[in-house]
């Protein structure tokens, strides 16, 4: 089995979000970048397929050279090789088109991605990729087993989960549950040393135009101060929620 894991390079979850150039660009100054948390679940599941079922694991990112440390981190966790498609990730469609080319050239039969990137929160790439390639697709995946060509998966649904049967070739957008949090791997020294020698190939993009463009960013409006209610005066809270906020 040839697995491709899509890695998006995102600000750490604790980052303060700021913009520059008149709120038209994200200000990366002082921001720590990490593997998108959802992609970590997928990468860890891919390592399991590698160790237990002899799969090979390639990681891919569509982005400029600044994303390479993130790809190296994925190699240190255990991926065999990495590909960077050398172009700005302008929108989900453009990224999906670039990854589709990588899938076709490399004949991957399983693509693992994340439910969404925690920066632009598009949730677009995996579904678009599936439609471009006409592969099967499971979104919000919280469990995956592969046996030959057959796959059984589960996905989160509103208020529960759904068991699914499908076949390779397959695209998966994973989240917590695909592996448990405690099983996520932190690169160790040996992994980091080995990652330096693993191949990271930079390939040029195919020509695609993006379909959407971000023109500016805004921060949510500043919130008024909290109204404190005395712990002995719960009636007042009920009164405020009923008469002022009108939510009960």
């Amino acid at each position: 089995m040839k697995i491709l894991v899509c890695i998006s390079h995102v600000p750490d979850t604790t980052s303060k979000i700021n913009f520059k150039e008149n709120d038209t660009k994200f200000d990366a100054n002082g921001v720590q970048f990490v593997i998108n948390p959802y992609d970590e679940f997928s990468l860890t599941r891919a390592m399991w397929f590698k160790e237990k079922q002899g799969a090979t694991v390639t990681v891919v990112n569509v982005g400029n050279a600044t994303t390479e440390p993130t790809l190296r981190k994925a190699l240190a966790i255990g991926a065999d090789d990495a590909i960077r498609v050398n172009t700005e990730a302008l929108d989900g469609f453009l990224v999906a088109k670039q990854i589709a080319e990588v899938v076709k050239k490399g004949d991957y039969d399983l693509v693992l991605a994340g439910r969404e990137s925690i920066d632009y929160n598009g949730g677009m790439v995996p579904g678009m990729l599936a439609s471009i390639l006409d592969f099967n697709f499971v979104n919000g995946c919280i469990g995956l087993e592969i046996d030959g060509d057959a796959a059984t998966a589960s996905r989160e649904i509103d208020g529960g989960n759904e068991k699914i049967s499908t076949n390779l070739p397959l695209i998966i957008a994973g989240q917590k549950g695909l592996v448990e949090e405690k099983d996520l791997r932190i690169p160790n020294m040996r992994g980091i040393m080995m990652a330096r020698k693993k191949p990271l190939s930079v390939i040029e993009p195919v020509e695609v135009s993006s379909q959407t463009a971000t023109t500016s960013f805004e921060k949510p409006a500043a919130k008024g101060a909290v109204k404190l209610v005395d712990a002995d005066n719960v009636d007042e809270l009920i009164n405020l929620l009923h008469n002022e906020a009108k939510v009960i």
Partner: peptide
């Protein structure tokens, strides 16, 4: 206008198709 950065911001996005 859409949510971005996990509710820490919004982005104004043009759809050009």
């Amino acid at each position: 206008k859409r949510k971005a950065f996990s509710n820490k911001a919004f982005s104004n996005t043009i759809i050009s198709t």
